[in-house]
Computed example of a mutant assay.
Amino acid sequence: MSWLVTGGAGYIGAHVVRALSSAGIDPVVVDDLSSGHAEFVPPGIPFIEGSILDRDLLTDTMRAHGVTGVIHVAGFKYAGVSVQRPLHTYEQNVEGTRVVLQAMTDADATRIVFSSSAAVYGTPDVPLVTEDLPKRPASPYGESKLIGEWLIRDQATATAGTDAALRHTSLRYFNVVGSADPAVYDTSPHNLFPIVFEKLLAGQTPQINGDDYDTPDGTNVRDYVHVGDIAAAHVVAAQRLQAGEPVEAAYNLGSQNGLSVREIMDAMARVTGIGFTPRIGPRRPGDPDRIVATGDLAARDLDWRNRYTVDEMVRTGWDARRAAG
């Protein structure tokens, strides 16, 4: 039994690969290295460089390695940039998911864990986001993830009751941070942690975008979850699908409480030992005051819980970034 991890050379995917191996499941990686890094794939793990848009490549890979399920992490994940590049976003996230599903059909792989996003909810005006909240994505990225969920749902409906019945679940989450392996770190130029780390390493002062929001300290409150916890939840989801155990169509992997940007900045200074007072810049258009999701269903079914404090999130991410040189 093996599982294909699309995007397995990326920050999240590489952690999923390691978590699968630790659980005794053989991972296979396909990644086009558009944002991933070949060195993030552990030695001995089958790695095929290529695009998820290449149906023949995916089908041949699954057949060659006896793949029974897919953890579909690959995608274009930059919500802000997706507004300027909607066609690229839809190609990678919608067409890419369709091709993955078609290749799974060709290769008789019948289980999929989809790396979705809490961006499917848009900017809900509620204290805690639950799975049944109306879906109102506010970017092409969020729309593409929601359509990906629809594609998987519809394929499952079409194959229900057959030998090729598709079993699936989608995992929705916001801001993934930290590191569970010093060999893997977040290299995104759009995420808060790497932005702050690069500023500090360059001797520059990080910036907070707005401090007049309706929150206790005036800065945005967001859902920060550790990448090690995220990877573990993907593996448990795969195990439940493999065992034929019941799963929900979608789970939020939420922190329940959230952290403000200022709290993150304070932890950055505290953990790195680099004292700084962040500059205050203007608000970014469309940034809501607070977005935090529950994780109750995932706690029930996927052993989901937050195992890291904010200082540990920062420490693991900082150590991995510095280890990279």
Rank of each mutant, 00 (worst) to 15 (best):
I71F: 07
T277E: 15
R136S: 09
G142P: 08
A119D: 14
P137T: 00
I71D: 14
L166I: 15
P43A: 13
D303I: 00
A238P: 11
R55F: 02
T294W: 00
F76K: 06
G244P: 10
V94W: 05
A165G: 10
R307L: 03
M62Q: 11
D296N: 12
P282L: 04
G148W: 05
I230F: 02
V227K: 06
P42A: 11
S82M: 05
A107G: 10
P182C: 00
G36R: 04
D266I: 04
I208G: 04
E143Q: 14
E131M: 03
T89Q: 09
D287L: 14
Q204P: 01
Q207F: 00
D106P: 07
E143N: 11
A269R: 12
A64P: 00
D319R: 11
V196M: 01
P278K: 03
L87H: 13
G66D: 11
P27H: 05
M62E: 07
P278W: 02
S144I: 07
M1P: 13
T61V: 13
T215G: 10
T110W: 14
R322W: 08
A293V: 02
Q92D: 10
A202L: 10
R270P: 09
V129T: 13
D132K: 06
E248P: 00
Q239C: 03
A231Q: 02
A293R: 04
V221T: 10
I152R: 07
E263T: 04
A107S: 14
A324W: 15
V310L: 15
T130I: 09
A14K: 06
D154G: 03
D212V: 06
L259K: 03
G148I: 03
L241Q: 09
N220R: 14
A299R: 14
V235N: 09
S144Q: 10
L87Q: 14
Y90T: 05
D54A: 06
L297F: 04
P282Y: 00
V70G: 09
H234Q: 05
I52N: 08
G75W: 02
G44L: 12
D31V: 04
D217V: 05
L20S: 09
A232D: 13
D266W: 00
R222E: 10
A138E: 11
F174P: 02
V120C: 06
I274F: 07
V17S: 07
Q256C: 08
P189N: 08
G254K: 02
K135S: 05
Q207Y: 01
R284H: 11
S82W: 04
T123H: 14
D311T: 10
A249V: 01
R98Y: 12
A231R: 02
V94E: 09
P43Y: 02
V227L: 08
L302W: 03
R222T: 08
